Amino acid sequence: MRVKKVFNNNVVLGVDEHGAETVLMGRGLGFQVRPGDGLDAGRIERHFVPQAMPAERLAALAAAIPLDEIEVMEEVVADARERLGADISEHVLLPLADHVHLALARARVGTQIEYPLKWEIENLYPAEAATGRAALDIIERRLGVRLDGDEALPLALHFVNAQIGSGSGGIAATMQMTQWLRVALETIGERHGVEIDQHSLAAARFITHLRYLFLRARDGKPTPEVGDGIGEAVRQAKPLQYATAERLAHKMEEMFAWTVGREEILYLALHVSRLTARDDSTEDTRADT
């Protein structure tokens, strides 16, 4: 590994023999080294492979964050991985650290930000929201600063983003998806006259399905196939739920200009049926609304 660019005494952009770039960190790693110099592997404490942003931008981000804050965020990421699973990888560390670095600066001068989607994050992503609150406890214990409770919300979105792998869209795409989830649940509740329990198993499964529907539609990936005739059978047996699924597909097309296929509508109808399971005696009078 050789130096491509030095950002400060602790951060350099390295390049291997194949031309692949990696952001490298270590105390004093960049001291008195120049582009083209070889790097002592024993002095490299952390490395980050660029994914959602160019390597130089990632390195500049790392250089702007004190090492002690990055060390704290390593504990936050480790805790999040224990709570949420292995999808919380090291790739989320620097975006998290960048957010916390700015939040700490705001806290020092008494500035607060009002974050949108507070209800949605708390109710659609309860595990991630709880992990965000736990992160605030770790930050206070390690750095002696208690961040405002709402700072857990963007941290939760970072954890959601890490799990679904929303790629170049980053947090903006995750917020877009969160808005879509809210619209979908509101649509079901209004059309069926029910109050959906956000914390029920059926709701959790539906939200998970919607997350991956959002990503499949956005990325143009095919829907898992189902057997011939199943869609028509569901439409005949559950006309109101199927009509609601069609409405959800139409709303997604309106919001994002994406095409939602017939098989995807079938999956949506099955989830709607589970969410609204009750006396179906009123279906015939409402199925065409």
Rank of each mutant, 00 (worst) to 15 (best):
D98F: 13
V3Q: 07
E21D: 14
F256Y: 14
A135P: 02
S200R: 00
L102H: 15
A277N: 07
L124H: 06
D197R: 02
A257P: 11
E264Q: 09
A129I: 01
L147V: 01
L67F: 09
H47M: 12
H271Y: 04
G170W: 04
E254D: 15
S166F: 09
R106H: 11
D280H: 06
M255W: 12
E283V: 08
S168C: 05
Q32Y: 01
A129F: 10
N123I: 01
E225Y: 02
G165I: 06
E140K: 08
G144C: 06
G85T: 12
L248A: 04
D279K: 00
D87K: 13
R108N: 11
S166D: 14
A277H: 07
K238Y: 15
F256E: 08
Y125R: 02
G42E: 07
D87Q: 11
L61W: 00
R142S: 12
A245S: 09
I88Y: 05
G261F: 05
H18M: 14
P66S: 10
L248I: 09
P224K: 06
G169H: 04
H250F: 13
A172Q: 11
G169F: 04
E45R: 10
E90G: 09
L275Y: 04
L94I: 14
V77K: 03
I207C: 13
A287S: 11
R133G: 10
I70T: 04
G30K: 02
I207W: 07
V194E: 09
G167E: 10
D79G: 12
V226K: 00
L215S: 02
H99S: 12
S273C: 04
I230M: 10
N161G: 05
Q51R: 13
A60K: 01
L181S: 07
R182C: 03
A269T: 09
D280I: 03
L213V: 03
H99I: 09
G165Q: 06
T289S: 10
G19T: 09
H91N: 13
A127G: 09
I188E: 03
R182N: 12
E71G: 13
I196W: 03
Q51N: 10
S168N: 13
T282G: 02
L155D: 03
G28I: 08
A162R: 02
Q236T: 15
A202Y: 08
L24D: 05
H271L: 01
L201M: 12
A233W: 08
A217S: 02
W258D: 02
L24P: 03
L39S: 06
L124V: 07
A269H: 05
E69F: 01
F206N: 04
T208C: 06
A63R: 06
L213F: 03
E82L: 08
E114N: 13
H99R: 05
E186N: 14
T285S: 04
